[in-house]
Simulated scan of single mutants.
Amino acid sequence: MKKTALIYCEGHFGTMDGKTANGLIRSSRKYEIAGVIDSTKAGMDSGECLEGKNNGIPIFESLEHAVKMLPLLPNHFIYGIAPAEAFLKEDERKIIMKAIELKMEIINPLHEFFTDDAEFLNHSIQYGVGLHDIRKPVPSKDLHLFSGRILNIQTPVVAILGTDSAVGKRTTSVILEAALLEKGLKVAFVATGQTGLIQGAKYGVAIDAMPLQFMIGEIENEIMKAYDDENPDIIIVEGQGALSHPAYVSSCGIVRGSRPGAVIIQHPPKRTNLGDFSFMKMPTIESEIELVESFSSAKVIAVTINHENMTDEEIENVVTDYEEKLELPTTDVLKHGCGKLISSLFELFPEIEGKTNKVLSN
């Protein structure tokens, strides 16, 4: 039975910094989401706001408003913002304290660890609730260095990389996983960020919180756990940031640790500057493909589109343009599904097509 949760996303739901909340509204194996807090969109349906389709999950003005309107108080409070500064503001601290007083378990995806905060810790003990720091790594003695075990597995590994942070790599990963499961395949998804872990991914680690010397080994270890436990037909690994990104090294560790046999790249064609670094221009899709293929032994087999600020006509034009220029299948999985991606995977890994139990649809 899923746990119930209320997501805090003040001022950011549906935006890049609201990606944790956005992801949980789109998909959550672990939590039944009761509502979202964002006063700028209060009264709206979260599905209508995010996807143009009602999902019955309301957006509230405040924590007090949610408590008043919901028939039952959710037992978890999720901080759903991924701010560039990665730390709480003073007014947010007060909201967390109030949620603790309401005896809600606190789910914290930030680099700021609540279990290291004396005020939060004492308050949580007083009210008998837990603080869950999703990004907090285990002690170094329990971390893993690269072992080379992954070099001996035959299961196809596919990495979903991108040209920037918050472009939809996790969303594409989850949708592709579901589409492959629908074909009857045994799929293992390895999350590499806080949102995927909160969504309920069985395997994964918050890679950007790892000490650098353990990053590659931890990715390898999670893949090997999935391989040993599930004997999957295919393994999907979520990307982080971008290989070209000047401020992040996560993609480097993911490529080295997962040793993908294929890469899919997610790109937002209308984004001109890096999301959290507006003084820097976005890479082109061509330059990212070249970098990935020179850094990795894998080929880029498809491009997926993030349609932010794009009309349906613009999406269609970009898909046609990319397929002509790049000679790669291109799609927007939120709009058009994963048919092209699955066809590309079957072409590269024909052994997995024979394990399906359904006919591939367009």
Rank of each mutant, 00 (worst) to 15 (best):
A206W: 04
L180I: 06
Q213R: 12
G200L: 09
M282A: 06
R29D: 12
E182K: 11
S296K: 01
G253N: 00
T15R: 05
V292T: 05
R170A: 04
I150A: 08
E218P: 06
M97D: 04
A201E: 00
S173E: 02
K41F: 14
S361L: 12
V303A: 03
I96H: 07
L185A: 11
D233I: 03
G80M: 15
K183S: 01
L151V: 10
T331I: 03
K325H: 08
M69W: 06
M215L: 13
L243W: 03
A166S: 13
S244K: 13
F189H: 07
A206D: 14
I107Y: 03
V129R: 00
V303W: 02
G193H: 08
L274R: 09
E324M: 11
L180S: 04
Y322A: 02
I125N: 15
P74H: 01
I125F: 15
P246F: 03
L6E: 07
L341W: 02
S250F: 02
K169G: 01
T356Y: 06
E64M: 10
E92Y: 08
A298Y: 04
L121V: 04
A209G: 10
P83V: 06
P74V: 01
E324I: 05
Y31C: 01
L341Q: 01
P329A: 03
R170W: 05
F87T: 05
D312P: 04
V36I: 09
L88G: 02
K299Q: 12
V205K: 01
N75E: 08
G261L: 03
H65V: 04
S258P: 05
G14M: 03
F277N: 08
R135F: 08
A118E: 10
N273F: 15
L70F: 07
K68G: 07
I153C: 09
Y227Q: 15
K299A: 09
V158N: 02
D133R: 13
D228Y: 04
M16V: 14
T356R: 13
V157Y: 01
G14Y: 01
K103M: 15
I153R: 07
N309D: 13
L243A: 03
M215V: 09
L121W: 05
T15A: 09
T192E: 07
Y31T: 03
